[in-house]
Amino acid sequence: MSKQLTFIVEHLNKDPFKENVHLITFDSLEPMQLLEILNDVLAEIDTKRMFTLQGMLKYKPPGNMSDPSSFRQDLVTGSKPVIHSILHWLLQRITELKKRAYLARFLVKLEVPAEFPQGGVITDTDHQTYHKECEQLKSSGFSTAEISGKDIGAMEEEKDQLIKRVERLKKRVRQTVCLRKPNLS
């Protein structure tokens, strides 16, 4: 637990939080003060509601806090172990969670009113996963330079093959022309 608290205090003292707290002062904070700090961290990740965000960020309480109703009650009352656990988890993944919170706004399925036709563009748009496709391409390991380099290499190879083919055809044409010339002697 002391490693966890040390990690939390170190990150709370850095940008963007700049809390200027020490291990002892952080440990002695009142429940409402802890909730304020938790709210500040969640606000930095860009969220409006703690419970919704925790579900969206896929936070799973530690094994000893697995009962959802008691976990919520402990969270609302500012229980130190619950707040410390959440803060530790959030601060370890803050960059990843900011991205997830940002994307969540765009990846939520929109309910289309019944008076609008449900086919065509609306259905197509609903089933498209542009973000996932983009992330897969980014993580595929190919850079544009590699891809264009491979394409250029393939095109140069095709060019060489075509030049050889043209040369062979020219040779055949010359041979055919030579064979058909009348012999004047």
Rank of each mutant, 00 (worst) to 15 (best):
V112H: 04
Y102K: 12
I24W: 13
R72N: 07
K3Q: 13
E96H: 10
K159V: 08
I83W: 00
V41N: 00
Q161K: 08
S185A: 05
M50G: 05
M155E: 07
D124W: 08
S2M: 03
E146W: 09
T6C: 08
L184N: 00
L75Q: 02
C178G: 14
I122M: 03
S69H: 07
R100F: 07
L34E: 00
T52G: 08
H88V: 07
Q54A: 08
G55E: 10
L12C: 08
D160P: 05
M32N: 15
A154C: 14
I94M: 11
S139P: 11
K138E: 05
D74M: 04
T6E: 11
F116M: 04
Y59A: 03
K138G: 01
S28M: 08
R165I: 13
L53M: 14
L110P: 12
I122C: 09
V173F: 05
G153V: 06
N13Q: 06
L38T: 01
Q92R: 13
I163P: 00
K3N: 08
L57E: 00
F106M: 11
E115H: 07
G141N: 06
Y59S: 00
L107N: 13
L57Y: 01
K58R: 10
M32A: 14
Q136H: 14
A101T: 04
R72D: 05
K18A: 02
L87V: 04
Y59E: 05
L29N: 01
L57N: 03
C178L: 09
